[in-house]
Design a binder for these strands. Structure first.
Lengths: 149, 149
DNA sequence: AGTGATGGTTGCAAGATGCAACCTGAAGTG
DNA sequence: CACTTCAGGTTGCATCTTGCAACCATCACT
C-alpha cells in the first residue's frame, strides 16, 4: 500500500493533486473513464498497459476516491470502475491537457481524437483563467500567496 | 536522449501532452516556473528533487520547447530557465490541478498556498468547460469523436 | 465437461530513481 | 595572487519501479 507522499512540499495543492493521481497511467485511465471506458479489459486494450500495472493503478485510484468499483451494469459478475464525483471534478484537468496537446502537438489537419459538445457536436471553447471580477488572466497577472489562513 | 513515446495511443492529444511533459517532477518544475523560479538552485530547493533528476528534467523540458535556457538576468555567468509561450500555455493545466487539490485535499481552514489575481489580490474563479455557444458543460455533456479530419 | 474470454497474480529482467560524492568554473576575501 | 565559497552540475551505485510473459481463477456458453 503506497501511502507515503512523494512530493513533500505538500502545502501546495498542485503537489497534492499530483500525488493523489499517482502517475501518468492513472491520468490516462481517468481520461478513458471520461471517454466511457468502465471495464478492466477496456482500459487495458485502450492503453496497452501491462495488466499488473493497470491492476495497481486502478487500486490506488479507487483507494484515492477517484474511481469507484461497482458491480457490472450488464448483470455479469464482473466489476466496473466508474468515476466518483471527485473523479469527475478532474474534467477541467483533462480538458486543459487535451487543448494544450491539440494546440502544440498536431500539424494543421493532422487527425486526432476530439472532444465535442454532445448536443451540438461542436468543439469546446478554450479554457480561460478568469479573475473573480471576470477579467481574463494570463500567468503574469497572477501571483502565489505562500500561506492562506 | 529520450525521444520515443511512452504512450502509443498518440492520436489522443492528452497522451501527447502527457508524453511531452515527461513526468510529475517536470510538471512541478513548470508550476515553480509560474511561481517565479528561474534558477537551477531555486527549483532544487523548492522541490527537494535530486540534482541529477532535475538536470535531466530541465533538459527534456528545454528540448520539448516548454522551457528556454537563457543567460541569467542578473548579469552573472549562470543560466536561467524561463517558460516559452508553449510553456505558458500550460497555465490552465496547473490552475486546474491546483483547484482540484484545493477542493479535495484540504480541510476547511487548513493552510495552503493560494493563487491570486495580482491586481486585486482575489482568488480565481473555478475553471469552467464551456461549449462553443456558451453553455457550461459537465463531463456527461461531452463525447469524443475518434478521428477528426 | 470443455472451451474461450475476463480479470487478475507472480517472477524476473531491465530501466528509472534517489542519494552521496565528486568536479568545474565564477565570485568573493585577505 | 592564494584561498574559500557557492552555483551548477556529473558520476557511481544501491534500490525502487516498470514491463513482459507466464500462469491462474472465475465466468459464460455449449
Amino acid at each position: 500500500m503506497v501511502t507515503r507522499t512523494r512530493f513533500d512540499d505538500s502545502e501546495c495543492p498542485v503537489a497534492r493533486s499530483v500525488d493523489a493521481i499517482g502517475d501518468w497511467w492513472s491520468l490516462l485511465i481517468v481520461r478513458d473513464a471520461f471517454d466511457g471506458s468502465r471495464r478492466f479489459g477496456e482500459f487495458q486494450r485502450s492503453l496497452g498497459v501491462a495488466k499488473n500495472i493497470l491492476t495497481a493503478r486502478l487500486r490506488t485510484l479507487v483507494a484515492g476516491g477517484v474511481l469507484e468499483s461497482v458491480p457490472a451494469s450488464d448483470g455479469s459478475a464482473y466489476r466496473e470502475y466508474v468515476l466518483t464525483p471527485k473523479g469527475k471534478a478532474l474534467f477541467p484537468v483533462i480538458v486543459a491537457l487535451r487543448q494544450w496537446g491539440e494546440q502544440n502537438f498536431f500539424a494543421p489537419g493532422e487527425p486526432h481524437s476530439e472532444l465535442v459538445d454532445r448536443r451540438e457536436g461542436h468543439r469546446l471553447r478554450a479554457l480561460e483563467v478568469v479573475s473573480e471580477d471576470g477579467r481574463r488572466l494570463s500567468p503574469d497577472d497572477t501571483t502565489v500567496h505562500k500561506i492562506h489562513v
